[in-house]
Simulated assay, not measured.
Amino acid sequence: MKLAAIDIGSNAVRLQITRVLEYEKVITFKKLEYVRFPLRLGHDVFSEGRISEYNEERFFKLMTAYKNLIDLYEIDGYFGCATSAMRESENGREIVDRVYQELGIDIKIISGDEEAEMINKVILQGLDNAHYIHIDVGGGSTELNIYENHEKVYSHSFKIGSVRTLEGRDTPEAWQEMREWVGKYAFKKGQKIEAVGTGGNINKLFELSGSSPKSRKMSLETLTKTQDVLKNLTLEDRLNKLQLNPDRADVIIPASDIYVAVMKAAKAKKIIVPDVGLKDGINYHLYQTKHPESDKVFVKN
């Protein structure tokens, strides 16, 4: 079985095509194709409230290219979802309707809660019964989830994200609300909590930190040291010395601020970086839709 996930974020638009591998009680997704295009729809939306005609046309061209890849791979199912930039845009619904009418690609504009739930499906399967706070930082929003005894007990979406913060469209009130929420629901005196981080920026921070790729864990101290190194580099240095992509080099610092702020508010000393994200959640959602009776679990390939 071949599946395709389209993730339309505030910073980039991703397509991942996978083959589902099934063995006994486990499924894994073998990546056949992965394309990430830095369209940065959030730049328009967070400053002007709508997607510009220029970026609407670029988005349409990108969806045309993705449709061609989906057709060429002869997939068995796909799911396209758009997150904070598209759901906050005045013309977001109009644009996804046009894509459906002209290309036949059905895109769902999902809420922050729906976004978090899709990621939860794959995150939970790698956790034990301990106490965790899951931090998913996107371009326009941050989703936080609290897990206890292998169940999600609290969740909330905040209008704080890497692109939104870079553009200066975040607010002190939103940051205060997030810290207060974490303090209320995540921090429990005498109870240890670990963070789980998802999103492209935490994966890059983990890579830059030099932490062990086998453990997929990074201490708060290591994260803040990596953050300090980045803050002491110019944008040109981050582009040329670290060879970061342009759309990563400018947002990685505001993204790191979010992870650090949440970890400090929760008193979390370590963060697990499992290298899974919304695209994996989409594929698992697709698999479950096609096999609702299945009790097989997802394992990261």
Rank of each mutant, 00 (worst) to 15 (best):
M1P: 14
L3Y: 10
A4F: 13
A5M: 11
D7R: 05
I8N: 07
V13C: 15
L15H: 05
L15F: 08
R19G: 09
V20H: 10
V20N: 02
E22D: 09
E24S: 15
K25S: 13
I27W: 05
I27C: 07
I27Y: 06
L32T: 05
E33S: 12
D44N: 14
S47D: 12
E48K: 15
R50Y: 13
R50N: 01
Y54F: 15
Y54R: 14
N55L: 10
E56N: 00
R58M: 06
F60M: 15
F60E: 03
K61H: 12
M63I: 10
T64G: 02
L69E: 10
I70Y: 11
D71K: 13
Y73P: 01
F79R: 15
T83E: 03
S84W: 00
M86Y: 03
M86I: 14
M86S: 07
E94A: 13
E94D: 14
I95P: 04
V96N: 00
V96Y: 04
D97L: 06
D106T: 15
K108Q: 11
S111R: 08
D113F: 10
E114V: 12
M118T: 08
Q125L: 12
L127W: 06
D128W: 04
N129I: 05
A130N: 12
A130T: 07
H131Q: 06
I133H: 08
I133N: 01
I135T: 02
T142S: 01
L144W: 02
N145T: 09
N149H: 08
H150M: 08
E151D: 04
Y154A: 14
H156L: 09
E167L: 14
R169N: 14
T171C: 04
T171V: 00
A174N: 10
W175M: 08
Q176D: 12
W181I: 09
V182T: 03
Y185T: 02
Y185C: 03
K189N: 08
G199A: 04
G200I: 03
L205M: 12
E207T: 09
S211W: 04
P213M: 01
K214N: 13
K214Y: 08
S219L: 08
S219Q: 09
L223A: 07
T226N: 03
D228N: 14
L233M: 15
T234G: 12
L244R: 06
D250L: 07
V251P: 05
I258D: 02
M263P: 11
A266D: 12
A268I: 09
K270Q: 14
K270N: 13
V273C: 11
V273G: 06
G277S: 03
L278F: 00
L278D: 01
G281P: 10
I282N: 01
I282E: 02
Y287F: 11
Q288F: 07
T289G: 11
K296P: 09
K296E: 04
V297L: 07
K300L: 06
N301W: 13
N301H: 13
